[in-house]
Amino acid sequence: MSFYHFAKTLVAVLLFPAYRIQVIGKENIPKEGGVLLCSNHISNLDPPVVGITCPRPISFMAKAELFNSPLFGKILKKVHAFPVKRGMSDREALRMGLKSLKDGHVLGLFPEGTRSKTGELGKGLAGAGFFAMRTDAKVVPCAIIGDYKFWGRIKVIYGKPIDFEEMREKKVSAEEATDHIMSAIKSLLDTYKQGSNA
């Protein structure tokens, strides 16, 4: 068993019962090929929660500061994360993200770039649109709903891949592509928020 799968199993044993995680739409994640997985961001626990609910390994772009700790930085690298400087304008991180997608892996992003303090969906940064437009990866929106109270309930919803074919043909801007992704995430949030505290 790889370190990634060992860590995923360990974290799943802890988090699934603690937050009674419900997963919806897992079948919407393509079984192979490059996938750009874009989610809203409400907690530091979002990356592990998405990681344990996604059926495929994910390479997350994580803020560079997290890699400053020798031990934690080493663990992050072992679970396929790589650093990005704030604002997602880090050329090396963009290059690594493109390579990950072109090699047929799943790249996980939180397009807002930082956690939402209000729980409301913020504006997405252009990095998500950049990856969507520069590769043939399938773009899958994800919505995380809940407040991470112990023994509360968290919903993780994976939407159907967004059709980017027309937008790629028109060569729309990265910003416009990101807005399209954020609209898909908002649609999932609006659809599934009702009854999320039940």
Results as ranks from 00 to 15, higher is better:
residue 1 M to K: 12
residue 3 F to L: 13
residue 7 A to V: 06
residue 7 A to N: 04
residue 7 A to I: 08
residue 9 T to D: 03
residue 10 L to Q: 03
residue 10 L to W: 02
residue 12 A to G: 11
residue 14 L to C: 06
residue 14 L to K: 03
residue 18 A to C: 10
residue 19 Y to H: 04
residue 25 G to Q: 01
residue 28 N to C: 00
residue 42 I to C: 09
residue 42 I to H: 03
residue 43 S to F: 01
residue 46 D to E: 09
residue 48 P to A: 08
residue 49 V to E: 04
residue 54 C to Q: 05
residue 55 P to N: 08
residue 58 I to Q: 00
residue 58 I to N: 01
residue 62 A to F: 13
residue 63 K to A: 05
residue 69 S to P: 02
residue 73 G to R: 09
residue 73 G to P: 08
residue 74 K to P: 04
residue 74 K to H: 15
residue 75 I to T: 13
residue 79 V to N: 02
residue 81 A to H: 00
residue 81 A to E: 00
residue 86 R to S: 14
residue 88 M to D: 11
residue 89 S to W: 09
residue 89 S to T: 13
residue 92 E to F: 13
residue 94 L to A: 04
residue 94 L to H: 05
residue 96 M to T: 15
residue 97 G to W: 11
residue 99 K to D: 14
residue 100 S to I: 15
residue 100 S to K: 12
residue 100 S to D: 04
residue 104 G to R: 00
residue 105 H to F: 13
residue 109 L to W: 05
residue 110 F to E: 03
residue 119 G to V: 06
residue 119 G to M: 03
residue 121 L to Q: 05
residue 121 L to M: 03
residue 121 L to R: 06
residue 122 G to M: 12
residue 123 K to A: 14
residue 123 K to D: 13
residue 124 G to K: 03
residue 125 L to M: 12
residue 125 L to W: 05
residue 126 A to C: 07
residue 127 G to W: 10
residue 129 G to C: 11
residue 130 F to A: 09
residue 135 T to D: 07
residue 135 T to N: 06
residue 137 A to Y: 08
residue 138 K to D: 11
residue 145 I to T: 01
residue 147 D to C: 12
residue 148 Y to T: 11
residue 150 F to M: 13
residue 152 G to F: 09
residue 153 R to W: 02
residue 155 K to A: 09
residue 158 Y to V: 00
residue 162 I to G: 09
residue 162 I to F: 06
residue 164 F to C: 05
residue 170 K to C: 08
residue 171 K to Y: 12
residue 173 S to K: 10
residue 175 E to Q: 15
residue 176 E to P: 11
residue 181 I to N: 07
residue 184 A to T: 10
residue 185 I to C: 00
residue 188 L to Y: 06
residue 189 L to G: 04
residue 190 D to S: 09
residue 191 T to I: 03
residue 193 K to L: 07
residue 194 Q to A: 15
residue 194 Q to P: 14
residue 196 S to L: 07
